[in-house]
């Protein structure tokens, strides 16, 4: 089954890559952001969906990743691609350090602390003592990378393909992690912590490590986002970024790998539509849709898609579908 999922991710990415040659400019940028947010939501999904620990502050890790990349590029002339591993490590370390006290306690403590982190973050980023690195309120502007090796691609096309490739690798790694032994332990902590502990899982440590991995994913997404937007500033990373990621998680599908993509598409395209009504409408639309999904479609778009596919192909379920269902059943066993 793991093979089927790998195949699905590779095939999906190849199809998505083809889009680079059909679209241009703003649409490609939007797709780049979809992939970026998909990675960020996947990160959130690992801890909140699979591990059951609610984070309302993943925007903070996105911001840290974005700032690490921007600072490395503008202050130290590090090539953009080389900033990704650095940002991954730093975000994982932050996640670990931050998760340690909050996850020891379980319950809503993580949600509370991460929410507090998200609210306080813009102020921290504006702190004058950090201004030589962060650029204070002004933020940092970086330039758009050009296609390397003399490839005949526009900067937009290259950025999209680059982001997509990173995304494909990260989705593959996550799919493998979650379907294996560690993935089972991660889900066991969510579904039956007492049994998991009895079976020798160190709950606090596993939760903290999962949180670190999750922060790493969202941090890398932040780096990619910074490269795509070419600008970071404190006010781009308000608490609403964290909330947006959370909305994407629920609407896309909790504890579903493909859900991260649905969720990302939702948070990229829906506000654009909503803002045509009113600047304030985006928030209200998010809020109403979030509540509506929780009541009526708690499995999100991914769950809906799965049911539709199953109905269309009753005799031979597509391989992807079967893999997804298997993952879900394991998750709730």
């Amino acid at each position: 089954m793991a093979g089927a999922r790998t195949l699905a991710i590779i095939a999906g990415s190849a199809c998505a890559a083809a889009l680079a040659f059909g679209l241009s400019g703003y649409h490609l940028f939007q797709l780049t952001m979809v992939v970026t947010y998909a990675i960020a939501i996947l990160g959130l999904n690992i801890v909140t969906g699979y591990n059951g620990q609610i984070s309302l502050g993943h925007g903070a890790f996105y911001a840290i990743g974005a700032y690490v990349t921007a600072i490395l590029i503008s202050n130290y002339d590090v090539p953009y691609w080389a900033t990704l591993p650095v940002s991954a490590l730093i975000c994982a370390a932050f996640g670990f350090a931050f998760g340690l006290p909050a996850l020891r306690l379980g319950g809503l403590y993580l949600a509370l602390t991460t929410f507090a982190l998200a609210v306080a973050l813009p102020q921290l980023l504006k702190y004058p003592a950090l201004e030589p690195w962060t650029g204070g309120v002004q933020g940092i502007v970086i330039s758009k990378p050009e296609a390397p090796f003399g490839l005949k691609l526009s900067a937009d096309q290259w950025l999209y393909l680059f982001t997509l490739a990173i995304g494909a690798v990260m989705f593959l790694l996550a799919a493998n992690l979650l379907s294996g032994r560690i993935g089972r332990a991660i889900r066991a902590v969510r579904d039956n912590p007492i049994a998991a502990e009895a079976m020798g899982v160190d709950l606090a440590l596993l939760k903290t490590r999962t949180f670190a991995v999750s922060a790493l994913y969202t941090g890398v997404a932040g780096s990619l986002g910074a490269i795509a937007v070419q600008f970071v500033a404190p006010d781009s990373f308000s608490v609403f970024l964290s909330i947006t990621l959370f909305v994407g998680l629920v609407v896309g599908g909790v504890a579903s790998i493909s859900g991260a993509i649905f969720g990302a598409a939702f948070i990229v395209f829906v506000p654009n539509l909503a803002e045509q009504v009113s600047k304030a409408a985006a928030g209200a639309v998010y809020g109403v849709i979030l509540i509506a999904f929780l009541y009526f479609i708690p499995s999100g778009f991914a769950g809906m898609a799965r049911r539709i596919l199953q109905r269309m192909l009753p005799q031979r379920p597509a391989m992807v579908v079967r893999a997804e269902v298997g993952a879900r059943e394991n998750g709730h066993a």
Binding site: G52, F246, A280, A281, I291, P298
Partner: peptide, 21 residues
């Protein structure tokens, strides 16, 4: 828990943007 937290977040969004609106 995730659902109830989600509803609170939804309320937060709705009230915030209603106020602005």
């Amino acid at each position: 828990v995730l659902s109830s937290v989600g509803v609170f977040i939804g309320l937060l969004l709705v009230f915030n943007s209603l106020t602005g609106w």
